[in-house]
């Protein structure tokens, strides 16, 4: 029988083994479902200081949890999981797991700074959001961003030779980020450029230079025209 209450539990707290035998009894599948407790059993007293070393998060210890940041947050209006007050609290009490759990939404901060403007204790929550994103990256919870990979390549070349070689920076950056030298977009760009390049027009210009074209069926039309103009002039001016 299914445990309907499972819908009330966060999925990451449900433990289940597909195959499990305990004391000779087969309890595979939902029979062995266990739920990890939500109880906070300790504080990490040092975590706050770790985050405070990132620029922008220096004032996180001032927070008194009024909720003004979350209240004013642009992203919270879109997604109630985006809760700066909660993350600040997690920083203060050292609930690292809670930060890691939300790693895929913390970076969504749009830096509108409404929270920083409204904060009565000058915590600067926007800076805390940035600090958390950096911490997640430093701790390896997030993949390295392309800009960080570029910076690393750049810096390495400086260390090695005191200067960079542009082509090498680009080449190695592309290699490290798994990008081909000629990416798809560049290839499409080239093909389209060729397609729409006015090659025919240029060739016609060249031919016309050497063999100026005549209007079709022109024949003696020119002589007739010349004759007519002369007659008109004589008729007018005598």
């Amino acid at each position: 029988m299914a445990i309907h209450e499972k819908s009330l539990i966060e999925p990451e707290r449900l433990l289940r083994h597909d195959n499990l035998v305990v004391d000779g009894v087969d309890v595979s599948g939902h029979w062995n479902t266990m739920i990890t407790p939500r109880t906070i059993t300790d504080y990490d007293d040092d975590f706050e200081a770790v985050i405070q070393r990132y620029p922008g998060a220096e004032n996180v210890h001032r927070c008194w949890q009024c909720g003004s940041c979350t209240n004013s947050c642009t992203m919270y209006a879109q997604n109630v999981q985006f809760n700066p007050r909660y993350w600040i609290y997690a920083v203060r009490t050292g609930l690292k797991d809670e930060i890691i759990k939300d790693k895929d939404i913390i970076w969504q901060c749009v830096s509108c700074n409404k929270c920083t403007s409204i904060c009565p204790k000058d915590v600067r929550p926007e800076g805390v959001m940035k600090a958390l994103a950096h911490w997640l990256e430093d701790e390896g919870h997030m993949p390295k961003s392309p800009s960080r990979i570029f910076d690393e390549e750049f810096t390495e070349q400086i260390y090695a030779r005191g200067r960079i070689e542009d082509s090498l920076v680009l080449l190695n950056f592309l290699k490290k980020t798994g990008q081909p030298l000629v990416p798809q977009w560049l290839r499409v760009f080239g093909v389209r450029l060729m397609q729409y390049l006015p090659v025919g027009l240029g060739m016609r210009f060249a031919r016309n230079f050497f063999i100026p074209p005549r209007t079709r069926s022109w024949g003696r039309t020119g002589e007739v025209l010349r004759q007519y103009v002369r007659e008109q002039k004589e008729a007018t001016h005598g």
């Binding site: 407790p37 939500r38 109880t39 906070i40 059993t41 300790d42 504080y43 949890q65 909660y86 609290y89 997690a90 609930l95």
Partner: peptide, 12 residues
């Protein structure tokens, strides 16, 4: 109960 995070606490 830590009322701000709605979680039980047992802290030494």
């Amino acid at each position: 109960e830590d009322t701000l995070v709605k979680r039980p606490i047992v802290i030494p």
